[in-house]
Amino acid sequence: MFERRMFLLAGLGAMPLLTAVPALADTNGDRAIAFIKSTSDMILGAMRRTGSTEERRKVLGPIIDKSLDVDGLARFCLGRFWRTATPDQQQRYTAVFHQVLIGNITAKLGEYQDVRLTIGRSKSQDDVEMVSSVVEHPNNPPTTVEWAVADAASDPKVIDVVAEGTSLRLTQRQDYASYLTHNDSNVDKLIDAMRQQLTQ
């Protein structure tokens, strides 16, 4: 009897929590949506203002640093090789990853002038908010793009972009993993190859 009452009390105690959870998730979703909205406005605005690639890199760099979890991405993309890398290698790799990422994003955005982004809903997946959107640009069918936002409540950061079901960070990780597998798992060689890319 006592146990049952305790159980009931515990249940009642948990009730506000249970009702609070969906509300919390909703606000997190809204926060994530607002975050993606302001970030994409900033990026698209910067694209419109700037002309040359060099100029774009300079303007986009700080925006990317602020809105993307670059260090976390770098770590994820190195996958199982992160653990075997020395602290020095990790540091050099993260630095060059940073530059490669900014370069790639600038080049990718250069393809998509007059792009239009319509932001849809957000749904929670574990601790991450997935904000859906539709990207439209002339002469192309609309593309669905999902933005994975971590820490939506406190310090929102984009940790992945999923375009038409393909995750950008997963693709990058598999690219690096394959390169490393064919190059004696040598992280230094990977860093050199990434540097090589930057000079191209």
Binding site: N104, A107, T166, S167, L170, T171, D175, Y179
Partner: peptide, 19 residues
């Protein structure tokens, strides 16, 4: 941009089909 374009195309194709 890919260091190993073959691996990148493989990854993209498989993810796209799964999606």
């Amino acid at each position: 941009t890919a260091l190993d374009p073959y691996a990148t195309f493989r990854s993209l194709y498989r993810q796209h089909r799964q999606g």
